[in-house]
Design a protein around this nucleic acid. Structure first.
Length: 278
DNA sequence: ACTCGTGTTAGCTG
DNA sequence: TCAGCTAACACGAG
């Protein structure tokens, strides 16, 4: 499911294939994903414009839109969130598909094939005048499409944040460190898997209170987050993390061989090594 | 049938 | 007042 690295893949797909193509139709009839908009509201706002740029902070994506012909006023911002299972599919005029987002696994077909089999899981669609499209394909239906999204409550991007800002934001208060890493308002982009991977890399117990972290711990945490995020971006998703395949009953720590332990932290399922993480 | 979940958030609690 | 936590959201997968 999409965390920062997967969302970056979706951003890249839009940047590579969806910009500067005039929009001729929009299907915004999924009233849950498009809430609080009424059906047709997003369509009316976008038809006749183009997407001019795409941005990402944490797991949030948004596109700028062009003025209408004869005007110089830019259009609304189109906010996109992939939720737990969203993928972006961009189809070119020639039918070629560029995609990014939720990872489906090595033995599952592409999302474009799955989208053809399950048209009901396409929750939002932009049709371009050239015949292609941009689709949000989302099984779980927890994604979100909204005009002029509020991005003010989002913290700095987890992959862009500098060491001092990271330490100040993550170190404040007394929440369990994993809950703090998952707080999108403090640092944006870390999801459940990336949090477990980062804490395992850093050798820090997920339930440790942030006020119990020394400067040295925060340093290691920052380095581990960078390393885990870089690796996930390079290898294609957070599922490629070193400890991720061992997050299961009977799984063993790849470093010391101890049996991994499951707990709940910040309301999320959490796996950690009882020996290496303190 | 029933539980779980890689995300977000309103509303409750101490 | 504020930080932290719980439950709810929707719905597929095991």
């Amino acid at each position: 499911m999409p965390e920062l690295p997967e969302v970056e893949g979706a951003r890249a797909a839009i940047a590579a294939a969806a910009l500067h193509r005039p929009i001729s139709s929009v299907d915004d009839t999924d009233t849950y994903e498009c809430r609080p908009h009424q059906p047709g509201e997003i369509a009316t706002a976008l038809i006749g414009r183009t997407l001019t740029a795409v941005h990402r902070r944490g797991k949030a994506l948004w596109c700028d839109t062009s003025p209408l012909a004869g005007s110089s006023t830019p259009g609304p911002v189109l906010g996109l969130h992939l939720g737990m299972s969203g993928r972006i599919l961009v189809t070119g005029p020639d039918g070629a598909v560029t995609e990014g987002g939720d990872y489906l696994g090595p033995r599952v077909g592409s999302a474009s094939a799955e989208a053809d089999e399950h048209p009901g899981w396409v929750r939002f669609r932009i049709g371009f005048r050239d015949g292609g499209s941009l689709r949000l394909f989302d099984k779980r239906r927890l994604g979100r499409v909204v005009l002029d999204p509020d991005l003010d409550r989002l913290g700095p991007d987890a992959h862009e944040v500098d060491r001092a800002t990271f330490a100040a934001r993550v170190g404040a208060g007394r929440a369990p460190v994993k809950a703090r890493l998952l707080d999108q308002g403090m640092i944006a982009g870390v999801g459940n898997l990336l949090a477990d991977e980062t804490l395992w890399q850093a050798g820090i117990h997920p339930g440790r209170r942030v006020n119990q972290l020394a400067d040295d711990d925060l340093d290691r945490l920052y380095d581990a987050l960078r390393a885990a995020t870089d690796a996930a971006l390079e290898h294609g998703g957070v599922h490629t993390g070193e400890v991720i395949e061992h997050r299961r009953a009977g799984g063993r720590c790849p470093r010391c061989g101890s049996e991994m332990v499951k707990t709940t932290v910040g309301g999320r399922s959490t796996w950690s090594c009882p020996v290496d993480q303190t």
